[in-house]
Amino acid sequence: MLLIFLSILQLFYVLLLSPLIFGIFSKFEERIESKKGPSIFQPYYDLFKLFRKQVVVPEVSSPFFHVVPYVEFALYSLLTLVLPIITAFPLEFGPTVDFIGGGLIFGAAALLKKIASLDSRSNYSHLGVSRAASMGALAEPITVLIFIMLGVISKTNNPYIINNVLQTSSSWYLSLTHWFVAAAFFMILLVETGKLPIEHHSTAELGMIDQAMDLEYSGMDLAFYKWGGYIKKFLLMSVFVNVYTVPFFVPMKYNLSSIAIYTGIHFLKLLGLVISMGLLEESISKFRLFKNFDYMAISFSLAFLSFLAFYTTNGGF
């Protein structure tokens, strides 16, 4: 019963706070550029406004196009129930999927988004889909490699156990294997969240990847689409801080007050990540589209070097 309660708490925590993180992110960036910037609650205002607007759907599209934002939102909400966000012990739905399963759900949501964008029959959306698909085709194997390496570290694919292992064993936490994986995941994180060396948030169609895919949505559809996007990025960032880089303080045993305290700490961790990503984004420029594949090759090399580091530092096969 309590687990269900905690699950619902986690769900609401993610649903409600994910837009705020991105509001803070854009405000922070604008401040660095010495501009005033929008309010940190701007994403909420946007969503609120979109909920009241009329929904317009392309004439040529099928009903599928209209359904996808809701399905996507549901899938990402499901994911919030199974990943370690405010607790390091499995909640009510935790045992249903492991890391690979989570990856599959992510993949399913991405696939649905791509099909829906194809369904919109807009040229710009098609452009975005083909770019996103070619990037995704390269990012997927790297992600799988990363999961396998974490599996090697913890001998399981369960994100909770990985967190526990890294939290308790300092030799694993400090190992080269772990940090190569973390670096590779950070590079993938930048791809998945559409951050700078990969994607620039302007309206120039030359560099659009993910932004080009939602061009035909409007009204409540767009609101759910965007909200789902916020949740996805929030989840990925949470996994990055909770599992890969700073697995500390996450409560491993059931204790209501420590969970309440940790919720605050988790938000602070995310703020730290957002600040570092913001600084990174302000200091580098966008790659040309074809250079993205070099970036992916480096990220793959990092993931693979973690294999090699595992074999060399742990006495080999």
């Binding site: 594949f293 070099d294 090759a297 480096i298 793959f300 090399s301 070097l305 090699l308």
Partner: peptide, 17 residues
């Protein structure tokens, strides 16, 4: 091409191992 040469460089590392 750059991406290919990165991957070849990586496989060279594995070969050395």
């Amino acid at each position: 091409s750059t991406a290919l040469s990165i991957l070849i460089s990586l496989s060279v590392v594995i070969f050395a191992y």
